[in-house]
Amino acid sequence: MDAKTGFFYLFSVVLLYAAFRVISARNPVHAVLHLMLAFSQASGLWLLLKAEFLAIALVLVYLGAVMVLFLFVVMMLDVDVEGMRQGFWKHFPLAATIGALVALEMAAVLMGGFRGMEEPKAVAAVLDAAGQPVVVSNAKALGELMYTKYLYPVEIAAVILLVAMIAAIALTLRTRKDTKTINPSQQVHVRAADRLTVVKMAATRQAPVPEPAANAEEKKA
Results as ranks from 00 to 15, higher is better:
Lys177Met: 08
Ser137Leu: 09
Ala124Asp: 04
His91Trp: 11
Ser40Thr: 11
Arg85Trp: 09
Ala157Tyr: 04
Leu127Thr: 04
Val135Cys: 03
Asp80Ser: 15
Val59Phe: 11
Arg85Phe: 12
Val163Phe: 12
His91Lys: 15
Ala42Thr: 10
Leu162Glu: 08
Leu127Cys: 02
Ala157Asn: 04
Arg176Ile: 04
Ala55Pro: 05
Ala65Ser: 07
Leu49Val: 07
Ala139Phe: 13
Pro120Thr: 04
Glu52Lys: 07
Met75Ser: 14
Thr97Asn: 12
Pro120Asp: 03
Asp128Pro: 03
Phe53Val: 05
Leu142Ala: 08
Val163Ala: 15
Gly83Leu: 02
Met36Glu: 12
Ala122Ile: 03
Gly131Ile: 08
Ala42Glu: 05
Pro153Gly: 03
Val136Gln: 09
Arg115Cys: 05
Leu37Arg: 15
Glu119Ser: 14
Met117Ala: 03
Gly131Glu: 10
Ala55Leu: 05
Arg115Thr: 13
Glu82Asp: 14
Ile156Lys: 15
Leu162Val: 13
Thr175Val: 13
Leu110Thr: 15
Thr148Val: 12
Val109Phe: 12
Asp80Lys: 13
Val102Tyr: 08
Phe114Arg: 02
Leu45Phe: 01
Leu151Met: 14
Gln86Ser: 06
Val68Pro: 04
Leu127Pro: 01
Leu60Thr: 11
Glu82Asn: 08
Gln86Gly: 07
Pro93Ser: 01
Ala141His: 06
Ile156Cys: 13
Phe53Trp: 06
Leu151Pro: 06
Pro133Arg: 02
Ala100Leu: 12
Ala100Asn: 01
Val163Tyr: 05
Val81Asn: 02
Ala122Asp: 02
Ala164Lys: 09
Leu77Ala: 15
Ala168Ile: 06
Arg85His: 07
Met165Gly: 12
Gly99Leu: 13
